[in-house]
């Protein structure tokens, strides 16, 4: 039996119906058309489905859609402010921090959460902070550099 859920996604009030055993990721992708969050593993091991729920970084494959009731969810689709990209988005493009790009939404959401907690992370802190996001194309070098550069810009340094 489908359950009706009211929640907030990227600042918008959203209602959806879903099966109780559906993951938030499935709801986002299959019911709400928010396909920016990706399913790479469905077991919480790749981070491609990263979103923030009430300000906390999580894997949306490890949360049920029904749990979203009354929560505030932020996905990659909510990162840019209209036509203005988030500094992380800009820096990822500039530094070629993506090749295939399928891990990119998850990295961006995770990096945003990381910088919110730690605006001036060391390379090591960035590497450990993003260890839950797998990238198979880049070897992470340019991702780390993009995050460093975005952090610098966001600090106004």
């Amino acid at each position: 039996m489908a359950v009706l859920v009211s929640t907030t996604i990227n600042g918008d009030a959203v209602e959806f119906a879903c099966e109780p055993d559906e993951t938030l990721l499935d709801v986002l992708r299959n019911r709400l058309g928010l396909t920016g969050s990706k399913e790479g593993c469905a077991t919480g091991d790749c981070g491609a489905c990263s979103v923030e729920v009430d300000g906390r970084l999580i894997c949306s494959c490890l949360m049920l859609g029904v749990e979203a009731e009354d929560r505030e969810i932020e996905t990659v689709e909510g990162m840019a402010d209209g036509a203005t990209l988030h500094p992380l988005q800009t820096k990822f493009i500039e530094h070629a921090a993506l090749q295939c790009g399928v891990c990119t939404p998850g990295f961006l959401v995770a990096a945003k959460a990381l910088l919110a907690k730690n605006p001036d992370p060391s390379e090591e802190e960035i590497r450990f902070g993003l260890a839950g996001n797998l990238c198979r194309c880049t070897g992470y070098d340019k991702i780390v550099r993009a995050v460093q550069d975005a952090a610098k810009e966001m600090r106004g340094a």
Partner: peptide, 21 residues
């Protein structure tokens, strides 16, 4: 030279459509 890639914005905003999208 090192210009920006044409598919960059789609890929950082979640708009790019992959196999399952």
């Amino acid at each position: 030279t090192r210009p920006l890639r044409p598919d960059g914005i789609d890929k950082v905003t979640g708009r790019a459509k992959y196999g399952a999208d």
